Amino acid sequence: MTEYKLVVVGAGGVGKSALTIQLIQNHFVDEYDPTIEDSYRKQVVIDGETCLLDILDTAGQEEYSAMRDQYMRTGEGFLCVFAINNTKSFEDIHHYREQIKRVKDSEDVPMVLVGNKCDLPSRTVDTKQAQDLARSYGIPFIETSAKTRQGVDDAFYTLVREIRKHKEKMSKDGKKKKKKSKTKCVIM
């Protein structure tokens, strides 16, 4: 069974824990209790493949930012979460993405942009803004509501699919490099 290491990042209060708990335990946590770091595991079937999701729910508070490099190193894919009623959390996505790329030393890291709290009427981040940002990053965008469960499975499952595509691409690139290195030079 394939294991996928997913990391949920975003500013404090955007609903990272609520999304994760909704996926794992099928219930909505409405009281806000700032996370330092929590880890969850769940076995699911995605596109006919049974897999184990190892999900790291991270601290959004700035005082825990020193811990970010460590979990970013171990993560295979990242859910970059903002709240649709919090423009600052949307603007912060850029910083999370840049930090992930720096730590992973790669421009090509599996990510999904997630606009959470889409059940709320007080939207300050337009869907088109988020779609445009995701398009500019070359990553999928999904709106979710941890409260109603809308888009929750889709967000995590899409990230797994992005990781699969990335692994497939990397193995193809690896095979191309191996083929090239088999060419021999004969000096007579």
Rank of each mutant, 00 (worst) to 15 (best):
L6D: 06
Y137H: 08
H166K: 08
K117R: 13
Y157H: 13
S106L: 13
D38H: 01
C80F: 14
V186Y: 06
C118W: 10
V114E: 03
T144F: 02
L159Q: 03
I46E: 09
K101F: 08
Y32I: 00
R41H: 03
Y64V: 15
V29E: 05
V112G: 02
G138V: 05
M72G: 08
P140S: 15
I36T: 00
P110A: 04
V14Q: 13
D153R: 03
K147N: 07
G13R: 06
E76S: 06
I24Y: 05
H95V: 06
N26P: 00
I142P: 03
K16V: 00
V44K: 01
L133M: 12
D108G: 07
L6A: 07
E98H: 07
R73K: 07
D153C: 08
D173C: 12
K5L: 03
K117G: 14
G48Y: 08
Y64E: 11
A18D: 01
K42Q: 11
E63S: 03
F28G: 00
D154I: 07
T74G: 14
A11P: 11
F141I: 07
G48A: 09
R68W: 13
L6F: 11
G10E: 05
Y4I: 09
A134R: 09
R102C: 13
V186F: 07
F82Q: 02
E162R: 12
D47P: 02
K117S: 14
G115H: 05
V114T: 02
V8W: 02
L56S: 01
G138C: 14
T2K: 10
E76M: 06
L52D: 02
I55Y: 00
L19H: 03
Y137Q: 06
Y32N: 01
Y40S: 01
D108S: 07
D154A: 09
E3K: 02
A59L: 15
Q150R: 08
A18L: 00
K16D: 01
H166V: 09
R73C: 08
K177D: 06
L19V: 12
N86Y: 01
D119T: 08
V44R: 02
R68K: 06
F156N: 08
P110G: 04
D153K: 03
M188L: 07
V81T: 10
N26T: 03
L79K: 03
I187G: 15
Q61P: 06
F156D: 10
Q22V: 01
R73L: 06
L79Y: 15
K128F: 08
D33H: 14
C185S: 13
M170L: 10
V29I: 07
V7H: 14
I46T: 04
E98Y: 08
L56D: 03
Q43Y: 04
V125F: 09
R73D: 07
I100C: 09
K128D: 10
L133A: 10
S39Y: 01
C80P: 01
D47W: 02
S145G: 09
P110F: 02
E76K: 03
K178M: 06
G12C: 14
D33S: 06
G115A: 12
I142D: 02
V14M: 11
V29T: 09
I46N: 06
F82W: 11
V103L: 05
K167F: 07
I100V: 12
K169S: 13
V125Y: 11
D38Y: 04
Q22P: 00
Y96R: 02
D38E: 05
E3S: 04
T127C: 09
P110K: 01
G13T: 09
H166L: 12
Y4D: 04
D132S: 09
I55H: 00
K16M: 02
V8H: 02
Y40H: 04
D108V: 08
V152K: 03
V109E: 05
E107G: 11
L56F: 07
E3Y: 07
Y4C: 06
L52N: 04
T2I: 07
A59Y: 15
T20C: 12
A11H: 07
N26V: 05
S39V: 06
G10A: 11
S106G: 12
I142F: 10
K5H: 12
K169H: 14
E76G: 02
D54H: 02
D119V: 03
A59F: 15
Y64D: 07
V8S: 05
I46F: 04
M72E: 02
L133H: 14
T35Q: 00
D57F: 00
K101G: 12
D126R: 07
V14A: 11
D47Y: 05
L56W: 10
Y32M: 01
E63T: 08
D30A: 07
S17M: 01
Q61M: 14
D30G: 06
Y157Q: 10
A83S: 13
E37N: 00
T2C: 07
E107M: 14
D119G: 09
S145Y: 06
E98V: 02
R97G: 08
E3T: 04
S145E: 11
V44G: 06
L53I: 14
D153A: 08
K42V: 08
A59N: 15
K16I: 00
D119A: 12
T183F: 04
E98P: 02
E49V: 07
Q61Y: 14
V109L: 07
I46D: 06
E31M: 03
N86V: 04
D33I: 08
G48R: 10
T20H: 00
I100G: 01
L56V: 02
V8M: 13
G48F: 05
V44D: 02
K42W: 01
E62R: 03
A155D: 03
Y157R: 10
V29W: 06
N86Q: 14
V8E: 05
T20Y: 00
E31C: 05
K180E: 13
V45E: 03
G13C: 12
E31W: 07
A134L: 11
F82D: 02
V152A: 07
G48K: 09
K176L: 13
E37Q: 03
R164I: 13
E63F: 02
V44W: 13
F141L: 06
I142T: 04
I55Q: 00
Y40L: 02
V14E: 13
T35W: 00
T58Y: 14
S145D: 12
A59S: 13
K178Y: 10
V14C: 12
K184V: 03
K175I: 11
D47R: 04
R68F: 15
Y96C: 06
R73E: 10
R97A: 11
D154H: 08
E162S: 10
K165L: 13
K167G: 10
E49A: 08
C118Y: 09
D47N: 05
L159K: 04
L79V: 12
Y64H: 07
G75R: 03
S65N: 12
F78P: 02
D47L: 03
H27L: 09
N86C: 12
K16S: 03
T74N: 10
T2A: 07
G10D: 04
A18Y: 00
S136I: 06
R149F: 03
M72C: 14
G115C: 12
D69K: 03
L159C: 09
F156M: 10
L113K: 03
L159I: 08
D54S: 01
L6Y: 05
E76C: 11
D57M: 00
Q22L: 02
K117A: 14
G15F: 15
S106P: 06
T158Y: 12
L23H: 15
L113G: 02
K104R: 14
M111W: 13
S39M: 08
M72Y: 15
L56C: 01
C80L: 14
R123P: 08
I24N: 07
A18R: 02
L52S: 05
F28Q: 00
Y137R: 08
I55G: 00
E98T: 03
K182E: 09
L52F: 06
E98C: 09
